[in-house]
Design a protein around this nucleic acid. Sequence first.
RNA 1: GGGCGCGUAGUUCAGUGGUAGAACAACGGACUUUUAAUCCGUGUGUCGCAGGUUCGAUCCCUGCCGCGCCUACCA
Length: 536
Amino acid sequence: MPPNQPGPPLPHEREYARHSNAWPFAEARALEKRIGDTVPGKGYVLFETGYGPSGLPHIGTFGEVARTSMVRHAYSVLSDIPTRLFAFSDDMDGLRKAPDNVPNKEMLEQHLGIPLTAIPDPFGTHESFGAHNNARLRSFLDSFGFEYEFQSSTECYKSGRFDQALLAVLKHYDRVINVILPSLGPERRATYSPFLPVCEKTGRVLQVPVIERDVDAGTIVYEDEDGAKVEVPVTGGHCKLQWKVDWAMRWAALGVDYEMSGKDLIDSVKLSGKICRVLGASPPVGFTYELFLDENGEKISKSRGNGLAVEDWLKYAPPESLSLFMYQKPKAAKRLFFDIIPRYVDDYLAHLERYPGQEESKRLDNPAWHIHRGYPPYEDAHLSYNVLLNLASVCHSEDKAVLWHYISRYRPDATPETAPILDALAGYAVNYYRDFIKPLKKYRKADEGDKKALEDLATTLEALPAGADAATIQTEVYEVGKRHDYADLKAWFRALYEILLGQEQGPRMGSFIALYGMGETIGLIRRAVAGEDLGS
RNA sequence: GGGCGCGUAGUUCAGUGGUAGAACAACGGACUUUUAAUCCGUGUGUCGCAGGUUCGAUCCCUGCCGCGCCUACCA
């Protein structure tokens, strides 16, 4: 989240942080135990998040960075040792299959197996496909104001930054593969190599057997796809490492101290941890978060498209509400679908509202503290999001200003200037109305009886003095209804809602007309009388 | 086979080692010459089951039952 205006300082933060039950503090304390009191040799404590750039950033990417940032901030309360966060992109991975949601799929399919950073950008805007997706990742993360440092796998390999660790893998080759082999089936076991040479002829990342290795020279000999024996250095980007070894080597080379990952990677974390130790380093403190489920409790899969996109959430709710979702119970498999959004918005508002009145020790357990990096804004939201959603659907308007007329009735003390959060929520509510309520509206055509009554209503309204109040209008609407042929007044009002607003229920007509505008209402009525389709 | 999570009010879910909470739904009432909204009020829930630790467990530990997910080829 973007930085807020600082609230009052919390003088005893560190003391309370030692005892807070909030999970980011529990994590930070585990990390503190690993680090101790002395600054690590590299000069900082390193957090890492991973990103596979064959796809675009998604809600899980957001979750991992948001949660890691929360732990990082919690740690910074406990310790004065500087921290850094690497957003690491596995952009040297060979392309496994062309994604469906990108152009030039045919072109991509000709580059299967080639590192993402060596494939032309199908969008034509960057120097490679990997670079394009890396840029998308960065602008995605930047849009939330995350503090991080981008790191490219390709760069690390090619620049020699990984060389020492790569040579260590070569040196401990047997011990490394002995960690991996027991986890493999017999067929794969026969051909497995932690080194995946990048073929000089085809550019592809090869999965081929390694025949010889020369620790002193730092090279391996492999059998190429055409049967030729080729010797290459393991350093300098000539070889990439197979996934689990890659992760371990990276931990060792960069000195990663903390990295979280999804439940699906539990076994990988274990194996990579062992390999990391073989390489002489200790694996980072880890945290396993649960995967998200869809509305029906089924797993979210990109191919089925049953997930919820970040953009969908942000269209209807502030980013802080999504942060709250990520904060709450990271170890529980939560259902992630559209209907939960309003509740998270209102929960977020409740936490925000509760914050200023809380004792300092309790404030560190308040999600708002973690979402806002220790400085939640002091602001009264005045109204819940659910009330605003109701208001938006009832007042029949895509105009935030009209919504504000209604809001002023409830909270005369609030204006868009003094209540920016409320103002933003009104905007989200309007989006919600436009996308979910409005399409469901079904306008009934006025029949002859309706038309007579409606025309009567229009003339009656015209006769009213300018600035007539809601009660006066309400009385007139009521009187018009009595003059016409409706079973009861309930039927008259329902007719108004169905014909004018496209819904079975609606606001009190007097208030509605006063706020919607006398002229506008008369116009609306005349259009209905003329038989126009108000739904268009 | 290995691993993880969940099981709290009709529903969706919070929650904490010390009388159990919210939202929605439901019900009752107020107000409004309609409805909705709004306002007030209403919950005796075996906190999955059984043990254990504790002065005290919904919360910690163990076992069990139910549901679900991940993983075993690739990253």
